[in-house]
Write a protein that binds this DNA or RNA. Structure first.
Lengths: 216, 216
DNA sequence: CAGTGTGAAAGGGTTCACAGCT
DNA sequence: AGCTGTGAACCCTTTCACACTG
């Protein structure tokens, strides 16, 4: 089952679909059940055509003069993104950010289920954080192997990141969600997606500077 | 002073420059003082020419056969991004993520200085988290105005995001770094940069699925 | 009309090819 | 050789233009 053509979804489209999804959920809670691209375009400050093409790529059809059925769009996006079946994950590095991610309930509705966390700090090992058990990092690889965990979330300090990534790979993990501000060297089939908060902030600063020069 | 031409930097380039910066810092600590694009290209799995063009945009020149001086590149990137003069910011929403950001020391070296945090929870108001004082949300707008704070970090739950964003704008804040999974409606000159963890994770999942189909 | 649907044009970013330097 | 520098080609994404539909 679930035999999608697995066509390549452009990354920008993929990211926007997630954002549409969040917003449509909210509109739905407010009792709406259809939207038009025109409205979405205003909300997101995007081009209406772009949204139409995004939805088209997701295999969603609308009806002219009316718009798109919100529940249908939500369902399509969820199935496209694979949120219908949840993926178990391990998290390494229970610092500020790691702990925050452990407590982020919303993830479960977005395809991630963090099963356990790992750290070196003896004060943390054996405790539970936001209901998730914390084990010693030395146990991560064997446990990942035994439990067939394929996704690792890396929230350790930069200097430790490569070492811990190697541990993950040794444990059979295939995809690493990397929050450490460093470049990871990983072998061929391993997938790495890095989140760079600093990059995002740099964009903000840059836009602010431009805005100021514009109005000066 | 600091009279840059303020040429438009492509956003992808901007983001990559931040990532180069992090990595070059690490190389520097390991005692290296030059790099070539060829090496960086391998580390980041990017095209060498792309890195050369990025550095060119940042106004950095290298020497043939040798490469680029790491300290010069770091300095150029920092000045380009405006990390030389630190920007004060307010943070609203001291939940898991908000608290984590308050404790992220590295920010100070990347142009952000979170001065204070704001929340509604009486248990948090009046305390300090990672050395940063937490005040009542009601005090945010007047304080922002008085202290001429221009950057707001929004880490409140989605349903509260619009209201708190409006408060920020009322307080004279010009740029909002938004971590809430929602679309913000803001008036013209206000800059919003949203971080969507869910989007990032969706990209990871998608790549993982492709990788699996490839090797099957 | 107020929306969807879609082919074609435009725009931007990435990659290629090759010249130049040491 | 091994690197930088750069114009041109390429490709992907966004935007435009317009036909279509209830």
């Amino acid at each position: 089952m679930s035999e999608r053509p697995l066509m390549v979804i452009p990354q920008p489209t993929l990211k926007r679909l997630v954002v549409y999804h969040q917003w449509l959920k909210q509109l739905q809670e407010r009792g709406r059940d259809v939207v038009s691209c025109t409205v979405l375009a205003r909300d997101f400050k995007l081009d209406a055509t772009q949204i139409r093409k995004d939805l088209e790529i997701a295999g969603i059809a609308g009806t002219p003069r009316v718009g798109y059925r919100i529940d249908a769009v939500i369902a399509s996006i969820e199935s496209l993104l694979g949120w219908t079946n949840v993926n178990d994950a391990f998290l390494a590095g229970v610092g500020n950010l790691g702990a925050a991610l452990l407590g982020y309930e919303r993830f479960t509705r977005q395809g991630v289920n963090i099963i356990a966390a790992f750290d070196l700090d003896p004060a943390k090992i054996g405790t539970k954080i936001h209901g998730k058990p914390v084990f010693s990092l030395t146990k991560m690889a064997p446990l990942a192997q035994r439990m067939k965990i394929k996704i690792g979330i890396l929230t350790v300090p930069a200097p430790a990141a490569q070492t811990v990534a190697d541990l993950m790979i040794a444990g059979g993990i295939e995809a690493i969600w990397n929050f450490a501000p460093t470049a990871l060297q990983v072998p061929e089939p391993i997938v790495v997606e890095s989140v760079s908060l600093a990059s995002s902030f740099a964009v903000l600063l840059n836009q602010l500077q431009h805005q100021r020069h514009k109005t000066t």
